[in-house]
Design a protein around this nucleic acid. Structure first.
Lengths: 197, 197
DNA sequence: CGTGCGACCTGACAAATGTCACGGCCAGGT
DNA sequence: ACCTGGCCGTGACATTTGTCAGGTCGCACG
């Protein structure tokens, strides 16, 4: 089963996998919240899930799928090699994780390995994930930083999260310190590239 | 010919197009600066080019390709439907422009139409491009805003562009006004989503 | 030859931002 | 019972940012 929001990529991946005689694409969806219903109907052995999707995050979709149909193997396929994504995907129960930079020939192999119960992880990304470590941000700091990521002012963030402006400033200051950034915008950028948001 | 930095997507698109008996993929590249050399060697009828690529922008690659081999038709395939991208792609000489959201079945048709000299443009995006219009930013304002996009301070930007801090502030203020934003970060976001950077 | 426009600069000002020191509340472990 | 750490808040402070009003210079256009 394929889950990717970009129809062209989804169809192209289907064509790629259809070349393999032992693989068959039984369902395709373009939204995260369609993953579980489609899987329940078609009962795929393996689900290829993109991280970036409307409706529901690919990580969340994986968690939901594993809860509903634990037998389904999940292979995450994503554009961005955010270290945090890998960690969260594995914690959500995914068996494999490949980035879209990997050669096309290896995809079918990855599907077969995942299908047979093995784990498939991009070695470069695994190393990055180890050095980058977990997010140093507390839950609340993450919330505030995410709210700040679109350029909102302190007052706007405070209003949205029902906090005082001083508290928002404190959380932001703490996040800036932990990320080693010089200001809010840089902290957002750093946290985002590490997959901490 | 295919040009896309993500190997998996590139291979998948190749598989998709290989299903069509009248189409053949003669070359694949993963960097913008490899487009012209590969085209010169394999002489494709149509080049599918992604906008986001390392080495050289897809738009720039299109311009270079059109200058070197004017007979080659160019079909831009991109993830993001930035209105400005469409405009710039057409000005660079591209015959077609499709986003990766379009259904996979339509890709082969788009390639055929472009190959026969017709223009192919996503209608939704074309409408957006008309309402969004050209960038209201002056060249210098664009430079400054791009330099600010990673969260740099005024002092850093001034140093990088050899400007006084006051001038940087003035350009930023002007850009904020023109984009209708409330601050620098929002101006960056707006300009970026419109493809003005 | 004036007129307009963009780039660049200065200086000054209000507002927003980032930092610091302080405190209280609560859940967890020792 | 005690300590720790996350979370929330206050108040004060220096710095940065955004705005405004002025001015010079070069260039294109009618």
């Amino acid at each position: 089963m394929l889950a990717d929001d970009q129809a062209l990529v989804r169809g192209a991946l289907a064509a790629l996998l259809a070349l393999e005689p032992d693989l068959e694409v039984v369902a395709e969806v373009g939204r995260g919240d369609e993953v579980v219903p489609a899987a329940a109907q078609h009962r795929p052995d393996v689900a290829l899930i993109d991280v970036e999707m409307p409706g529901m995050d690919g990580i969340e979709a994986t968690r939901a799928l594993k809860a509903a149909l634990p037998g389904t193997r999940v292979l995450i396929v994503t554009t961005f090699g955010r270290p945090g994504f890998l960690r969260r995907a594995m914690q959500a129960g995914a068996e494999g994780f490949v980035v879209k930079d990997t050669p096309a020939r290896q995809l079918a192999d990855a599907v077969r390995r995942v299908s047979s119960g093995l784990r498939v992880v991009d070695p470069v990304l695994a190393a990055d994930s180890l050095v980058a470590g977990e997010s140093p941000l507390t839950p609340r700091e993450t919330d505030v930083l995410r709210a700040a990521s679109d350029g909102s002012s302190v007052a706007t963030i405070a209003g949205a999260l029902f906090l005082s402006e001083g508290t928002v400033r404190n959380h932001l200051s703490s996040a800036i310190g932990k990320t080693g950034a010089a200001n809010r915008a840089e902290a957002v950028r750093i946290a985002d590239t590490n997959g901490w948001l």
